[in-house]
Design a protein around this nucleic acid. Structure first.
Lengths: 303, 303
DNA sequence: GGAGCATGATCGATAGAACCGATTGAAACC
DNA sequence: GGTTTCAATCGGTTCTATCGATCATGCTCC
């Protein structure tokens, strides 16, 4: 079978991405004529029409088959990259760019400690950071825009996960709150309180609801008309006597409380309420071993 | 990122397959010098040692990284082939080579009817047949040596399956057997009989054991020292009064009984004892649509 | 309606890569 | 020790991907 050349597939994918011959060619670092000729050659080799020729003008229009082939070309190119990347990692591990995604309820509290540690352990690693909600990070990982995620389990998506450490939930109460008398607060006692949580989309919200045995979306139900957008905001709301909340131990250790008049207590529940911090990457990634090797450094920064 | 050329990856895979530069080169339709130079160029591009150079002689020895890259090269080449194949199928469906694997308890009874039907429906299809046990067929499918399987569910393996038709089990009894008095035989009645089955490895054996609620490997337990190797043999053993057996309706319709003094009766059980005939192919195969299109033809041959 | 503009296809020339055939170097076998 | 097998190397040839320039086409705006 005559295989299509990777270069031609790159042209095809670039054209799909940019919707413009000239810009696609620039992205491939070739001239427009080269890209155009390459695509025509590809169509001839495959004996199939990939683009609507002649009629449309303003932007290239793909045939249904063309779109299908774009998708397959992406996976083929990714597979080729995996070959090269495997070799690169074997030659020189823990170096080069690493695009790390972190969720907002971990990043601000762990990165100040983690980044120096990583820099010290792997000086040749060039770390790019992206902070976003779990769902968008997972999408970025699957699309190849990110290499590694630092998130909280459980999380949905097809990825390899490596649990790092349990991150237990604590109750945050306004100073002088009646529940603050005790050493620890039973989960059941929260039923009588106004429970404030992050806005929807944050995995911490779902995890906290699960920990309290709440059905999804019960907390914050329209009371104030707005939900907290960060743990710092949430602490301010608790300090302002608007209610109580759950905070992960990691955030408390990371100084989310500042000098707010807020007290934290342990939370007693059937199954140690909390979340599991973890690393995640694409299954069969060439860098799996490298990523797993980072785990001790991250775990040390957590401890 | 500089991608490795598909040709060089083919050299690498061919060398792994043949263990010999000259034969690998012949398989790639190039001279030995070309293949050798190609591999050296690949090693230089990846800046990694793939082969143990200098020391060993009698056959090429791969480094651990080399073996890893061979595996990744296989998947990359398969992905490239999928691009070309997708285009080929869109251009000219139901044509070209189709490597079909069939299990021995289906093939002899279905193919005589199926092959002419397929030839009539898709004259340009060039059908290659391989008859083997389910496990080996699935391995062949996953390795890319086969394109499509015709087998019985349930079966293990990562593949897309399309159920075609139920194939109920019948009881085969020697003529004059006391169970032959009735119209149908309850599953429970088989407990008192010597149940003959195919030798281990045949999925029909496992399916029959499951249908009878038997633990695996109970039937045929060392009685005669040998198990049947085909359904034809099995019928002869029943005719010889060695015991009773289960036969799929498909085999009976296909004439497995011949003129043996064997009678068949329906089998009464909780959940209609039988197996499900199905087509199976690699997930995301470019030819999924084509294979699914074959289903009606196969189903017609079954009816 | 015609000039100007943007976009993609085409053409000729060229540099680099792939490949072949022959040869060399080295280890193993008889 | 001579022979055989095997892989690496070398010089020459062919092929092809690419460039720069040009052409064809359809839209936009005056």
């Amino acid at each position: 079978m005559l295989l299509p050349s990777p270069q031609q597939l790159r042209y095809l994918v670039a054209l799909a991405d940019h919707g413009h011959f000239g810009r696609a060619a620039a992205a491939c670092a070739v001239t427009q004529s080269t890209l155009s000729a390459g695509l025509i050659a590809l169509e001839r080799q495959l004996a199939a029409a990939l683009l609507e020729r002649g009629t449309a003008v303003k932007r290239p229009v793909f045939t249904p088959l063309g779109l299908e082939l774009v998708a397959r070309a992406r996976t083929a190119l990714a597979a080729l990259e995996a070959v090269a990347e495997t070799a690169a990692m074997a030659r020189d591990p823990h170096s080069g760019p690493l695009r790390l995604g972190v969720i907002p309820t971990i990043g601000p509290f762990l990165l100040p400690r983690l980044m120096p540690a990583l820099r010290a352990a792997y000086p040749r690693l060039r770390l790019w950071l992206r902070e976003d909600l779990t769902e968008r990070l997972v999408a970025g990982l699957e699309a190849g825009r990110l290499d590694l995620l630092l998130l909280a389990l459980p999380a949905a998506g097809t990825m390899e996960t490596l649990p790092l450490a349990e991150d237990p939930f604590r109750v945050a109460l306004p100073r002088g709150h009646h529940l603050a008398n005790r050493d620890s607060v039973p989960v059941a006692a929260l039923a009588g309180e106004r429970l404030l949580l992050l806005e929807d989309g944050h995995c911490l919200r779902a995890h906290a609801e699960a920990a309290c045995g709440l059905p999804r979306g019960l907390a914050n139900s329209g009371d104030e008309g707005f939900a907290a957008t960060s743990l710092h905001t949430l602490v301010q709301m608790v300090a302002g006597n608007l209610g109580v909340t759950l905070l992960p131990q990691l955030a408390i250790d990371g100084g989310v409380l500042g000098d707010s008049p807020v007290e934290v207590r342990r939370l007693d529940g059937a199954a140690a309420p909390g979340r599991m911090l973890a690393l995640a990457w694409r299954p069969r990634s060439p860098r799996s071993a490298e990523f797993a090797g980072l785990a001790p450094v991250v775990a040390a920064a957590l401890a």
